[in-house]
Design a protein around this nucleic acid. Structure first.
Lengths: 144, 144
DNA sequence: ACATATATGATAATGATTATTAATGGAATA
DNA sequence: TATTCCATTAATAATCATTATCATATATGT
């Protein structure tokens, strides 16, 4: 399924939920689906500003929260580099994060289900969410 | 090795590095070694205030940074619940976090080395650090 | 005890995120 | 088409954990 199709489906699904699709919201959603860079709110804002000169950063944040509540975006909280957002795979999954260029990529899915099952058994926790982050140097930054 | 011994060894090791051991620093270090609760800077501060009425929160933060630079404390960054610190196991390891009471516990060590090796191979990253957090409800909070 | 470099404590600054609020605009109805 | 209503937006103020600043206090080696 290509991006356009995903976008149309997501927008239709949100409409069905009673969410109004404003130009601003549409722009943010399209931006999120058109990148795999895990952008910050600020990056979304500055990326859209040329085409939406009156866009407010607050609107970006509100749209991200809306999408989060609809489980249509994954919020990755970082206290040092600010929050990042993943609209393409809005469910918990591992990330590899370059500490030099701050690139974030998705490593092929580990067997997280097995790991969660193990942690759950050992701790007695009911696990509802997880964060699996691996920090280091990406292939490009190793060369520098 | 009991806590007292660990404390003495840690202080001696810091002295050897040229770190001055002030009463405030000693108090923060001792506090960290005497708990497995992964306290926040604020909790350390309020916990020590009765015995150290002139202690400043800034000093707590500075001491935590010092310990971090000496790799003697693990800093767990949370943008929603503030940072938490682990002085007992100051190396990366998994955590189970209760989203209700905010308790943090250490599940028995998974085979993180194998996981990291896999991620490293798949991504080409040199992995230097990791965060493995499992969020959910602890056994006690499930009853409520 | 002295000298001096470092640490402390009080407070201001920072910066990402959230809250506030007046103005705007879309949709349903008459 | 005009009207009313209610959600959304944009601008900006507020928040809050953390960091920076700097005058004063203090640990350490002599």
């Amino acid at each position: 399924m290509d991006i356009k199709e995903k976008l149309a489906k997501l927008v239709a699904s949100l409409k069905k939920e009673g969410v109004r699709i404003t130009p601003q919201r549409y722009a943010v959603i399209a931006f999120l689906l058109n990148t795999d860079s895990h952008p910050s709110a600020e990056e979304i804002y500055t990326g859209l500003l040329p085409q939406y000169p009156t866009l407010s950063l607050a609107t970006v944040y509100k749209t991200l929260h809306l999408l989060k509540s609809e489980q249509e975006v994954l919020e990755l909280e970082f206290s040092e580099m600010g929050n990042r957002y993943d609209g393409r795979k809005p469910w918990p999954h591992p990330h590899a994060i370059c500490t030099r260029c701050r690139k974030i990529i998705d490593p092929p899915m580990l067997d997280t289900a097995a790991i969660i099952e193990e942690v759950s058994k050992e701790t007695g926790f009911v696990i509802t969410n997880h964060r699996l982050d691996f920090f280091g140097l990406c292939a490009e930054c190793q060369k520098e």
